[in-house]
Design a protein around this nucleic acid. Sequence first.
DNA 1: GCGGACTGCTTACCT
DNA 2: ACAGGTAAGCAGTCCGCG
Length: 897
Amino acid sequence: MSRQNLLDFFNNPKPKEKKSTESPSTEKESTSAEKKSPPKRKKVVYPVFPKDLPPSYLVSVTYEGKKALASLKLYEPTSQKIYFWDDTTGHKPYCLTNLPPKELKKLSRLTSHSGFDHFEIVEKYDPLLDKQVKVTKVVAKDPLAIGGRQYGCIRDIIPEDYQTITGSEEPVKVWESYIRYYQSYIYDNNLAPGMLYKIQKGKLVPVKHESSEETVGKILELFPGEEKEFMHSIEMWARLLEYPAPQFRRVALDIEVSSPIPTRVPDPQEAAYPVICVTLFGSDGKKETLILKRKGITKGSKELPSDVKVEYFDSEKKLLQKLFDAIRDYPFVLTFNGDDFDLRYLYNRATKHFSFKRSQIPIEVRRRVCSLKYGIHIDLYKFFFNRSIQIYAFGKKYRDVTLNAIGTALLELSKIELNKPFSELTYTELALYNLRDAEITLDLTTFNDNLVMKLILALSRIARMPMEDVSRQGVSRWIRNFLYHEHRQRNMLIPNSEDILAIKGGTTTQAIIKGKKYKGAIVVEPVPGVHFNVAVMDFASLYPSIIKVYNLGYQSLLCSHDECKVNKVPETPHWICRKKKALESLLIGSLRDLRVKWYKLKSKDKTLPNELQGWYNVIQSALKVILNASYGVFGAPTFGLYCPPVAEATAAIGRHVITQTIEKARALNIEVLYGDTDSIFLKNPSPEQIKILEKWSEKTLGMELDVEKFYRYAVFSSRKKNYLGIMSDGSVDVKGMTGKKRHIPIYIKKAFDQMEERLGKVQSPAEFEEAKKAIQKIVRDRYLRLKQRRWGDNPNELAFHVVLGKPLAAYKKTTPQHVKAARKLKEIGYDMKTGDLISFVKVLKEPHVKPVQIASNREIDVDKYVGYLQSTFDQVLDALGLDFDEIIGLTKLGRFM
DNA sequence: GCGGACTGCTTACCT
DNA sequence: ACAGGTAAGCAGTCCGCG
């Protein structure tokens, strides 16, 4: 499954849009701002949707407790303002139960519950029983009554009281009680966050975008002969994805707080120390820094850029007031870790240390999230932390989830390095530092034509989630939510996870890895050596294809029909339904086909206007992220539609498919050099042989097998997931090799890179001998330099870099080397937490490791590094028939001396 | 008490 | 809070050994 990423498209980033300088640069620094205009205490009123407003994007749905209804935020792209619209449909929170009203009326705790409203009998399709059922809709006055955290909510009362009161053994079921109210509102009204709406006669109605509709029509023509149901899904997705994206008016916010201990981050709960500097960096050109005056601090000699507006404050309260007013002005506010720090700190600082009332602060603090009353808060830390985003959208370009690492990797813009503690900075130094952080934060969303904003928008549409949620939650939530949405659209009961598990059961195969639930993919034993003319064929999104073609989903696996029981999944006792299409199969299948047949092609179509091609690339990446996870979620207990047999069946069919393909290739007399999950590496196949394989796959497996790439030659050792592939242009694919892993010292990596470059130059088998000699020289040189201890003035290049996977105290079973180093760092005052990258070197003395910060050249254990050099190169040398010891001048005999 | 064989833990990677 | 499979290094344990 190939790993081309979102950034590939933008190899030629356009020059940045010129930012309009809204504030004239003449006003540089005014120290007297607060004397001029003391902030007035006026009531903050937010705009309500006017009657004739142009089409606006639905960006948020929340429950408004005071009014007891759903409240929507819409972003009007011309005025670039947020407007509020309150529900007029009378929609109310509810849950479903199998008890009829007659029985429910016996439950006095329910009927007398202050939040209880009424009962309705509704008919639904139960996908686990495959039949229509009558259930009771228990309607409530507010969402907390259904499933609030406090004692005695409706979803708990129903089963508890029914059994105690009636003594009945009948299983009492409650459905859909754990769905957030605003999601329920979105599902029931078939809303799509991120899409265009208008208000017509007091109702929210979707806006048609004509040229997008035309494209949707064209897309549908790409799928002749598909069933009606499938076409409807394609149409729905295409509409969600074709509609244009707006310009997002936004501001990045970053604050600095004084702290008595420089290495400790102040606690946002206490918010005990003053906010000393704040920067607002806007997409509209705003660059404003607010500084708190403190004793003994001077401006210093450095200069700020002339377009930055600086304001000094005598009082922190006034600074906060000014900041709050600015926040209120923007429809979108960006932070890096604002949920856990900046916004939380500001809120607590304002309420606990100054006399701000809650109504005077534009921030709402919840358990894990900080949101805004007016705008939309996007915490980019949470977004970039998302593993799927990291890997599939950004191709692992950034490895550390810090502002500095992401900024450096994606923007080539780094944080300003400080060489003295915070408290000793001049005002200007502090402002520059703060300004840079805010700049990076904004630029993370502007680069490549606002890629990140568009990506969040696209995901929001697919997942049917507000942008605020989709940017914070993981891919399993995205998938769950659009599947839930489709359940509601079809009047299907959304099953409880435990019921799926109880009916469909667990897994039956034995995993190779201890502790795993079921058997996964096949990895073919590679044929060691150097092979010229290697074709890599793979199945385009194998697992989503399987889910589509084989009709996989919790409904279809182990269905209740006797006649389906013969439709077995290979190597398992599971069977698959032949009578009814599973929702997952339909929706994941249509998404896959849409990506492969439209968005992937369009994202590479140079004839399209640049901007449109970019949008298509965003879409195909968003789809990739979702599709890549679409099989895994079935095996994840946290997924709402968790169904182990579905995951197990997908993997089993995958093994079957690849095994058959390998057999077919061999039957065609093609040597199969290697294969992993969905790919096969073929030695020197003829174009005819390839064509036969492709046709065969289409016909017998119903799946698309294509040549994904062609290597001039490939180098395999006997290790799986470990090879080099040299493309015809000389570029080199390096997979799984230690020489490419992030933790190894640059000193060793450099030698590996040299070797890689040399291998890229080899055109033919005849040229190989010379390359081998060159590689031997590279290895020998690096070995000798190590032995001569020539690596520089400090051991930085010898440092290993390993991520701390959990808090220091959680390492109980063993103490790995990086943990030893981290504990040492902690002793000398560093703040060590999960996710930190620990850099350490290997030294002679116990405990043989030392943080690089405090290590010196003379204590380095050179032989350890020689050992590392050897194991790194062995992976390649094996295949080339070379021997490390011989290269460095040890004869085979010499090794025993 | 010591060393080799073994298992388990941890991280980084592949698909 | 997507999944399982593989490689590598090190920590810790067990067992034999006069």
